[in-house]
Simulated scan of single mutants.
Amino acid sequence: MKLDGIASFVAVADAGSISEAARLLRLSKSVVSERLGELERSVGARLLHRTTRRLSMTEDGAAFLDRARRILREVEEAGADLAERRGTLTGPMRIAAPITFGNMHLGPALYPFLAAHPQIELTLDLDDRRVDIASGAYDGVIRHGIIDDSRLMVWRLAPSRRFLVASNDYLARYGTPRSIADLDDHRGIFYTNRGVADWRFVGPGGAQIVRARVALRVNNGEMIRDAALAGLGIALLPAFIAGPVVRAGRLQIIDVGIRPEGESVFLAHPEGRRPSAKLRALADHLRRAFGDPPYWEEGLSSVDPA
């Protein structure tokens, strides 16, 4: 059983086609097909159903896939461990992150890290959908939210405050809410990946949930910001999205006398798997790059309700 055959099988399973796997592996389709055939002969089972129109996993293929991923990971980590013993960060690393945070903040923080460690081969997947961290498909997943799953192995990268914001035009037309109760009469712009259209606040009596009338539901933070700029309603946005337009005076922070529930930007990695030295180094670098308090909250502290 050859490692290049196992690598080709995993690549095909992840990509969904031989042609796409060949492109990612920088090999010809015929080479990938040949390696798959050799692997199937060595294990004595068909792993993939291949037709002219589609490719699907056999029952044996599905059972073998998890083991194949673990084999490749162990080989990669063994090589990386040897390099790290010599003081070098090297080898592949795959990270997932949200689209808006990735574009606005993660990318600029990553580039100097990769320039300092040119032997790291980073794959960054930007997607707002929740990723199954336990699947092992990623070395780490960067997310923004509340850390409430005790099964996750989590490193906190930065605190993250959120603010209620609206445009001057919206507030001129509908008035400025001054309390939690006032929000019931306003239109809200909500982030759908949180599951429900509500805003959570924390006061002396504990958590309070507010459900405003829905103006828009959308699964992207930049579109929420743009909808608020267009005067569609009030949005609850993290400072890393709202900061620039608030400082420019294009959105106004609304003080209802109570603070939105605190969140964090964090990096989670699979439980029971020792994180590599390069993942630990990346987390340390991102903490320094973001700061505490993070740079994106600069100039916003004076409007934060007590």
Rank of each mutant, 00 (worst) to 15 (best):
L3H: 03
A7L: 11
S8G: 05
F9D: 01
F9R: 07
V10R: 08
G16H: 13
G16E: 06
G16N: 01
S17A: 13
S17I: 12
A22S: 00
L25I: 07
R26L: 06
L27T: 00
S28E: 08
V31P: 04
V31L: 12
V32A: 11
L39I: 04
L39W: 07
G44H: 00
A45W: 11
H49P: 01
R50H: 07
R54D: 09
A63L: 11
A68L: 02
A68M: 04
R69T: 07
R70G: 06
L72V: 09
L72K: 10
E76K: 08
E77D: 14
A80W: 08
A83Q: 13
E84I: 01
E84V: 06
T90H: 13
P98N: 04
F101M: 09
N103V: 01
M104I: 06
H105A: 12
H105Y: 05
L106E: 15
P112A: 15
L114A: 02
L114P: 05
A116S: 03
A116C: 10
A116W: 02
P118D: 12
L122N: 08
L122D: 04
L122C: 10
L124C: 05
D125V: 13
L126T: 06
D128W: 03
R130C: 03
D132M: 00
S135D: 02
D139L: 11
H144A: 02
H144N: 08
I146N: 12
I147F: 12
D148M: 01
S150R: 14
R151Q: 07
M153P: 03
A158E: 07
P159S: 11
S160G: 09
V165S: 03
S167D: 09
D169A: 15
A172F: 09
G175Q: 10
G175R: 00
A181S: 01
D182I: 14
D185T: 08
H186W: 03
H186N: 01
F190P: 07
N193A: 14
N193T: 12
R194G: 07
R200C: 09
R200E: 13
R200S: 07
R200M: 11
V202I: 14
G206T: 06
I209C: 07
I209G: 05
V214L: 00
V214E: 04
A215R: 01
L216G: 02
N219I: 00
N219S: 04
G221V: 08
M223P: 02
M223N: 08
R225Q: 04
R225G: 09
D226F: 01
A230R: 00
A230H: 04
G233H: 15
A235Q: 13
P244G: 02
P244S: 14
V246E: 04
R247Q: 12
A248E: 11
G249L: 00
I253M: 07
I254T: 05
E261G: 03
S264E: 10
V265F: 02
V265E: 01
P270L: 01
R273P: 00
R273M: 05
R273W: 13
P275L: 13
A277S: 15
R280D: 12
R280M: 15
A283W: 08
R287I: 14
R288N: 10
F290N: 01
F290M: 06
G291D: 08
D292F: 10
P293Y: 03
W296D: 14
W296Q: 14
S302L: 03
D304I: 05
D304M: 15
P305E: 10
A306R: 07
A306N: 03
